[in-house]
Design a protein around this nucleic acid. Sequence first.
DNA 1: AAAGTATGCAACCAATTAGTTGCGTATATC
DNA 2: GATATACGCAACTAATTGGTTGCATACTTT
Lengths: 113, 113
Amino acid sequence: MLNAATVLKTNAVVFAALGDATRLSLLAKLTEGEPQSIARLTSGTRLTRQGVTKHLRVLEDAGVVRSIRVGRESQFALEPKPIEDVRLYLEHVSRQWGQALMRLKTMIESETA
Amino acid sequence: MLNAATVLKTNAVVFAALGDATRLSLLAKLTEGEPQSIARLTSGTRLTRQGVTKHLRVLEDAGVVRSIRVGRESQFALEPKPIEDVRLYLEHVSRQWGQALMRLKTMIESETA
DNA sequence: AAAGTATGCAACCAATTAGTTGCGTATATC
DNA sequence: GATATACGCAACTAATTGGTTGCATACTTT
């Protein structure tokens, strides 16, 4: 499905995943490069491992993060695609807005002329 | 406060506001330019006026939208600054990630050399 | 001034979320 | 093989969210 509603929903899920300070800092840790285990991602936070796990699942369900089990630990890594997608979406919104302002401005000018 | 935690929190609030399909379509309507009343923003949705109002308050609390009372209706308009801010934040994340990948790559190359 | 229109406020409800704890299981290590 | 480490699953709680309805209030229009 590529209809508008589906696109909105997909973007909304990603935004919602980013809509939490804890998850944003997990993301920040993951932008440092190497995949990291849940235990490692938990250290330094005030949360339980399970708490962090839940946040990671939210990120994973949104596709923002990807995990593979290696040995006894599961390594999480950032998945750049969805983030890039919503970034482009915001860029589109900004552009739309800018153009709309331009139109309004010229409309007003032609009226007052 | 400009400390990192505060920045994260601020961005998280904006992302959370964007994290709902209904709110994203409200935003889309507002990018068309002219400020719009609640009644107008409600028409075309399957929600109650009050439902839409609640979503608008969420957007307003996040600073993504601004409202002024004019006559008996309150006009909502898009406020581009916070959106631009989170867009830049995502750009920053992408860049960090890209650089980290580069570092890892050259590390691996130097190891296997 | 009466009727219609646009909104605000409050209460309420169902569903989701953020977080914990407890327990079981798989993998490493000694 | 025993111990320690890293994790998954399930249940539970408190708070938040998305949505409704009912009613009061403010502005417009005739």
